[in-house]
């Protein structure tokens, strides 16, 4: 009853690529599915971010009129969620599979359900539900309406129609899908502890588990996030990133055709400031009132970067 979902004919024969048997198979299947829908399959952004939304392919590309379709895995870091590898569900580093489609297609819900089918979630057997969940990112100055998608009571994805990003009204609106990969994999593999996930889909000696790959990292980073990360340095990181972001934005304004020339590098600094803030928050050195002011400072950077992006070719200028 609690075993893995039976394999259907559509799933690959090799268990190494089977989305029901291997973590990487799940990722590859999703990539393949969205590639077939015409999405650009990107690689993870090479910076520390708290969620797939921070990737410029979502944050910045969701602004402006130009159509855009992309899908990618994004390692996400939430320093505060570290549990020293002792909690079966919580991680300070995990994977999101992110899909962004602009404008949101009319059959987005069906596309999403088809993607679940591709990874072996049969809607005749499982209770798939769209439960209200309005999304808001105070640091990105972004909000949207949508749902958390439930499969048999487990939240496996976030589904959002972006209404505003970086303080700018989205016109047109993008549809964003975020699959919580570990949760989804735990579900399809029938596993109750994330570290027991089969990573490579092989058995016996050849089997590599999620724990083999990440347990040590979770332990070390939990120590780092809660105990060791140098607070003075982090405060410095935050201020330097903030200053650099503003400096780069000012530099980019120098273009004489009215276009901005440095939106992307400036946005990197916004990401850095945000991550420094997350670490400071995990270290417990930011009081309730200060917290709000830090969030506002990051949001100001995000808004300025969004405004700059709209003055670039990618932003439709």
């Amino acid at each position: 009853m609690t075993g893995p979902i039976p394999q259907t004919d559509a799933t690959p024969k090799s268990s190494a690529l089977d989305p029901n048997k291997s973590f990487q198979g799940l990722i590859l299947t999703l990539q393949q599915f969205w590639a077939q829908q015409g999405a650009v399959i990107l690689q993870p952004y090479d910076m520390e971010v708290g969620a797939g939304t921070f990737h410029p392919a979502t944050t910045l590309r969701s602004l402006g009129k130009k159509p855009w379709k992309a899908a990618y895995v994004q390692p996400s870091r939430r320093p505060k969620d570290g549990r020293y590898g002792e909690n079966p569900n919580r991680l300070q580093h995990y994977y999101q599979f992110q899909v962004i489609l602009k404008p949101s297609p009319d059959d987005l819900q069906n596309l999403y359900l088809d993607s679940l089918k591709a990874i072996g979630v049969d809607s005749a057997l499982h209770d798939i539900r769209f439960v209200e969940d309005d999304w808001e990112s105070p640091t990105l100055g972004a909000w949207g309406l949508g749902w958390e998608c439930w499969c048999d009571g487990m939240e496996v994805s976030q589904f959002t129609y972006f209404q505003q990003v970086a303080g700018v009204e989205c016109a047109p609106v993008s549809g964003e899908l975020t699959y919580g990969l570990e949760r989804l994999a735990m579900y399809v593999q029938g596993v109750e502890n994330v570290y027991d996930l089969n990573f490579n889909g092989l058995d016996g000696e050849a089997r590599i588990s999620y724990g083999d790959v990440f347990l040590q990292a979770e332990q070390e980073y939990s120590r780092h996030n809660f105990e060791a990360a140098n607070v003075e340095k982090l405060f410095g990181d935050f201020s330097r990133a903030e200053a650099e972001c503003n400096a780069l934005l000012a530099f980019g304004e120098k273009g004489d055709d009215g276009r901005h020339q440095m939106a992307l590098p400036a946005y990197d600094q916004c990401i850095k400031a945000s991550h420094a803030f997350n670490l400071l928050d995990a270290r417990g050195v930011i009081s309730v009132t200060e917290r709000q002011s830090y969030i506002l400072r990051v949001r100001e950077l995000a808004k300025a970067c969004g405004a700059a992006w709209l003055k670039t070719e990618g932003g439709g200028a």
Partner: peptide
């Protein structure tokens, strides 16, 4: 709370509904 969606959402006067 209402929202915009799809191709029409590029028009600021587009129809808003609770979900598409």
């Amino acid at each position: 709370k209402s929202m915009r969606w799809g191709v029409h959402s590029a028009d600021p006067n587009c129809l808003r509904w609770v979900r598409p």
